[in-house]
Design a protein around this nucleic acid. Structure first.
Length: 209
DNA sequence: GACCAGGCACATC
DNA sequence: GATGTGCATGGT
């Protein structure tokens, strides 16, 4: 079932070329900034950082809370996200010197555990970083994923993150490319068809699933 | 003007 | 363990 959903989505939408970011560090920052926020707003915040040449771990870490918050303002929740970025950078620089390669050497399980200890990084943000910045095979679950499965009666509306994740990871081959594309396709589906209100089920590629 | 967006932590019961 | 609330901008 999950495989045939993937096939239908890929057929309908084609490759999505995720994550929309130029470097692993940009992906990490974007993963935090996009929490409960429209991606277009995140892009504005990231553009502000780029314009000031601050899309780099140490440079970002040095900023005052006030400065960082004002730069990421378009992404919303800017005070709390400034703290969350700082918390992540404390870890990333403190333990790995802000070096993606050294973080990548650690096992998926250990990275995930450590990311989840950071205040402000929950399962979706951790898994997005692991999959899209570090290219390790973990499946990212988000609101769209749950909504899609719930609307097809494959999970209850309020199914917990880990349970839904297990569903995908047990049924699919643990493959970075597949996990990358699948989650991106679900987001695409969610934006175009599986919205919270006014879903467009009549023309949805999963209409007969 | 209401509603929503690629969550998460924390308070309260 | 479940349920509710704050955090905030910008597009539809």
């Amino acid at each position: 079932m999950l495989r045939s959903i993937y096939n239908k989505l890929y057929l309908a939408f084609g490759p999505q070329y995720w994550w929309p970011g130029e470097s692993p560090f940009e992906v990490m920052v974007g993963a935090i900034l996009t929490q409960n926020t429209n991606w277009a707003n995140v892009e504005k915040a990231i553009a502000n950082l780029k314009r000031n040449k601050l899309l780099e771990a140490r440079a970002l870490h040095k900023l005052s809370h006030k400065r960082l918050a004002s730069l990421i303002k378009p992404a919303g929740y800017y005070n709390i996200k400034a703290k969350r970025l700082k918390n992540f950078l404390d870890f990333f620089i403190g333990c790995y010197k802000g070096d993606v390669k050294s973080l990548s050497r650690v096992s998926l399980e250990e990275i995930r555990q450590n990311l989840l200890l950071i205040n402000g990084i929950g399962p979706e943000t951790a898994d997005s970083i692991i999959l899209y910045a570090l290219n390790k095979p973990v499946f990212v679950i988000d609101a769209y994923t749950k909504r899609m499965l719930a609307r097809h009666n494959l999970i209850p509306e309020n199914a917990p993150y880990n349970q839904v994740q297990k569903l995908f990871m047990q049924k699919l081959k643990k493959n970075v490319k597949l996990f990358n594309e699948y989650h991106a396709l679900i987001v695409r589906l969610g934006k175009d068809y599986c919205r919270k209100t006014k879903p467009r089920c009549d023309t949805c590629p999963l209409k007969n699933v």
